[in-house]
């Protein structure tokens, strides 16, 4: 009987975890890739974040002989926030700098990123949840800008 809580916990861990819509933030832009990329970079800057690098995955793939459409990773962050995270929650460091995937789908463009709420789980008590709430709301606002850009 003493082991019951342990047994329950174990069973809970084994239960399938359904994909929850809130795990990822995604949006579609009706713009072609170059224009959507421009809209993304503009909105990132307008929200006070710095784009630190754009990794061109497609170039690497085509360079190796694979056929692919445009696919880039945009790294962006605020230095103060990143320093706060690496100081107080070093377990988050491998997930930094934060990134957004942007890829072409036909003549439109898709944006994907991880919901910062999931980073809050990794950070535990080290960082106040409001930090990640603000981050999420900025990301949603950036994605909204790209979604509505014409």
């Amino acid at each position: 009987m003493k082991h019951l809580p342990g047994v329950i916990l174990f069973t809970l861990l084994l239960l399938p975890r359904p994909g929850i819509a809130e795990d990822m933030i995604m949006t579609r832009s009706v713009l072609a890739f170059p224009e959507a990329m421009l809209a993304l970079q503009e909105s990132i800057a307008a929200h006070g974040y710095t784009v630190s690098r754009v990794q061109r995955i497609d170039i690497g793939l085509t360079g190796m002989g694979y056929k692919t459409d445009k696919y880039r990773i945009v790294f962006a962050g605020k230095i103060d926030e990143i320093r706060e995270l690496t100081d107080k929650a070093p377990q988050l460091t491998p997930y930094l700098p934060p990134k957004i995937s942007i890829f072409a789908e036909g003549d439109q463009t898709i944006l994907v990123t991880i919901n910062p709420k999931r980073y809050a789980e990794i950070a535990g008590d080290a960082i106040a949840p409001v930090f990640f709430d603000r981050w999420e709301s900025d990301l949603r606002s950036i994605f909204y800008d790209v979604n509505t850009a014409r």
């Binding site: 990794q55 460091t93 491998p94 990134k99 942007i102």
Partner: peptide, 14 residues
């Protein structure tokens, strides 16, 4: 197509 979130592979040394 969303695997970009794993890209590029990264190791962090601190």
């Amino acid at each position: 197509p969303r695997v970009g979130m794993f890209l590029p592979c990264q190791v962090t040394v601190t």
